[in-house]
Design a protein around this nucleic acid. Structure first.
Lengths: 200, 200
DNA sequence: CGTTTTCGCATACCATCGGTATGTCAAGGT
DNA sequence: ACCTTGACATACCGATGGTATGCGAAAACG
């Protein structure tokens, strides 16, 4: 049966979703600092009172919620691409390729990769990224190391190097300074770098 | 002979340097957004009038100058480390290692790697980084590719992948979540990744 | 079914912020 | 001696993020 939600609860969720949707759009389009609360609440059709009711931390809390949502979506895409493969090695490479494709979408990359660390601080941003998408990378590399596919080594440095490489590559590929063929070249170079980890 | 500067010009430079020094310190310690102009000019012993006289673009211009300075210092360290070697391949690896060491210093990394893209926008930040430090990387890789040391391939994707990897690694190494031995592990992993580019 | 409580928000207000317009006074040219 | 220029300081402004309070309807209660 349906959750039997009352009028009050439904309206509450509607407001929260409107706030989330509009703020995500505005933050993605123009960046966190360039969007004022007044414009935000006007676009969502509510007032600042509603904003602070749902997000007590104000603008920062709202941004955090938007970031979580965007990260969750990317993580889902990456996980889906990886689980479509059987071989653990192919899971890694497919996941990395999917991440590049997902993070290249200009819709959320500004929130995820540019404003995220600056607004929340690098430590909190890193913790969120770790919980969302980098966790998969850690698990995949750990499994490959234990299976002997890649040479035994601490995985944490690898995760950061690879994560940083893919983040920057995504930003570049989505920028005007990158051309159409660069995505293929980048994935090829990334593949070669990944292959350097193999034991054979 | 000395540049024969008058009282006016010397005072001007003094003010400009004080502004630059204090803003660099405050931006590095607490981040761009958390530092107000009032506190800034008070720390430098001047007023807002002086700030806007030297930096017409206001807070953003000041930050840009700080970022340029920090990037120039890092680039100098990297170039010095590279030029101390003869072999082009060793120049590359030594330069990368020196970059990791330089960018790990918590003094400027916040300005260079976290606030930089958010404040100036990723495009401008990337252009500045390219002009300062990533340029060396591009030149080194191009030379190695032409010499046949690394397999022929477009260098732009490589530059972005490696630059991003090192930036993120530097942030991680300077964070509380990294341990003392992680720098060695990271440089080792980076070395292995670089070696994967070689033709032999 | 009337009363009371709670809750989801709107309104009004505030301190502070980045930015600007104007004033000032000494250094440097003539 | 005079006048121009430049390096600031002072005073001020609109807008911003954040808070305190008010309010009306929905739910809980007897």
């Amino acid at each position: 049966m349906v959750p039997e939600q009352g009028v009050r609860e439904r309206q509450r969720e509607r407001t929260r979703l409107a706030l989330l949707r509009e703020s995500r759009r505005l933050f993605s389009e123009r960046g966190y600092a360039a969007v004022g609360l007044a414009e935000l609440v006007r676009a969502a059709g509510v007032t600042k009172g509603a904003l602070y009711h749902h997000f007590p931390g104000g603008k920062t809390d709202l941004f955090r919620a938007v970031l979580e949502e965007a990260q969750r979506e990317v993580a889902l895409r990456v996980a889906a691409a990886a689980e479509a493969r059987e071989d653990p090695w192919e899971q890694l490479t497919a996941g990395c390729r999917e991440f590049l494709a997902a993070a290249t979408a200009p819709e959320a990359e500004r929130v995820m990769l540019v404003d995220g660390p600056a607004v929340l601080g690098w430590n909190e941003w890193r913790a969120m990224d770790e919980a969302a998408s980098a966790r998969h990378l850690t698990e995949a590399l750990t499994a490959l190391a234990e299976a002997g596919v890649i040479t035994p080594q601490p995985v944490a440095p690898l995760v950061h190097l690879l994560s940083g490489a893919m983040n920057e590559a995504a930003l570049w590929l989505a920028s005007p300074s990158a051309g159409p063929g660069d995505l293929a070249h980048t994935t090829a170079a990334l593949d070669r770098m990944l292959r350097s980890l193999r034991a054979d």
